[in-house]
Amino acid sequence: MPEPIIPEERDALAAELALGLLEGEERALAMRLRLSDPDFAATVDAWGKRFEPLCAGFEEQPSPALWPAIEHRLGGPGERDSHRALRRWRIGAIASGALAASLAAVLVLRPAPAPVEIVRAPDRTVIAQLGSGDAPGLLAASYDPAGGVLRIRAVRLPDSKLAPELWVIPADGVPRSLGLVAADGVTRVVVDAPHRALLSDGATLAITFEPHDGAPHKAPSSAPIAAGKISTI
């Protein structure tokens, strides 16, 4: 591409760079020009300012739970995924203000993660830790795709008359029940075929307390007490 010399072409090039239209060598040339030529750099900035109102045209309030979530994540690395799962949950499944408030408290109070419980398992096994050190619930899950069997161990769960129900939340954010699990010890969950594909890297496992009757339920009725992201090992 020849060096643009006509002012209108330089101006268009600046706009193209500001808009992100260029790629490859064209972009590299424009970036170099921006670095070497203050006038051109100013033209690019001027285009950025022209487009700026497009940014401001669609203001919309995010959920009030968002700042606590950000603040939590500033507090230290780790537990981002289960944290995100919690928040997603709140937005997707919880309408009640009281529940929202209690979950917001969980978000704020959730401490730095405890040492991860290592679940030794053969290749391609899927594992997840649900909950963390001082969270109300802590569970460890492993899944063997060959047999479609998920083993989940309740390390710690709060006392409840309700039963812990296990959910998988894939990328679409919709929780699917994998059934009730035992409140202590290991539960062996045979995952039915339609749900097996959902147990992949990045999906979230979560536990809520639900009534015994009617399980597996279509949707959770309360906030999760533990959640964690699946990773394939």
Binding site: C55, A56, F58, E59, P62, L66
Partner: peptide
């Protein structure tokens, strides 16, 4: 509010937009 609007416009999904905003 402004940046959430941008995220929402581009992602087209409220839940994704909140993740993005974080």
């Amino acid at each position: 509010a402004k940046l959430f609007g941008v995220c929402l416009r581009i992602s087209g999904d409220r839940e994704a937009a909140e993740d993005i905003l974080q």
